[in-house]
Amino acid sequence: MGLEEKLPAGILLTSVEKLVNWSRKSSFWPATFGLACCAIEMMAAGASRFDLGRWGMEVFRASPRQADLMIVAGRVSQKMAPVLRQIYDQMPDPKWVLSMGVCASSGGMFNNYAIVQGVDHVVPVDMYLPGCPPRPEMLIDAILKLREKIMAAPLGANGRKMLAAREERYGKPVSPPGSVPSSYAVDKAKRAEWLKAVAEGREEQLRIENWMRRQDHLAEVEK
């Protein structure tokens, strides 16, 4: 069952910040802002193979007033930009924006008069997801990283002061929250491996080596 079954003596001690952040990240409702090709991959992520329902996100809220995550999926044209801003303004706090695809993150391959070169010109973005279009697994990875970021976010002005004090005492984390890929974040051993690699500055190499190890035909070539 859930967390509540594992509590000794039925008492849980936590901070308000952790509780609030946990509830915010677990009940994360996306708003439909599918524009172009990325929208189709977003729908595929919500469909049965790459089920977003595993995290309770399969129902895309049609009304921005009921949503807390806006996934900007697709190219934002000059005509659409004011609409984007209006939808963002209609969302109640707390809200997050995930710009999905290169067109939303930076204008993508369309470096021209008609496309806004990155939605961060219009709305503040919390997570950028490159890809043209990003695979549904990449979208899920971005959502999981964003959830980690939310879990680690300070709550209020006091929370920010406490975070600053904590960082002064223990130093900044090697890898800021929300930057460990979800495939490494799930396993304690893999997470430790990743953090070690980040400290040495060779996390990409680690990724490539692990990928090579998984490719049977290349492992044979190596031999």
Binding site: S106, G107, N111, N112, Y113, A114, Q117
Partner: peptide, 14 residues
């Protein structure tokens, strides 16, 4: 009129 030849493509440096 954007698709005229003398209208610039209008991109930004990246």
């Amino acid at each position: 009129f954007p698709q005229r030849k003398d209208y610039p493509l209008g991109g930004v440096p990246v």
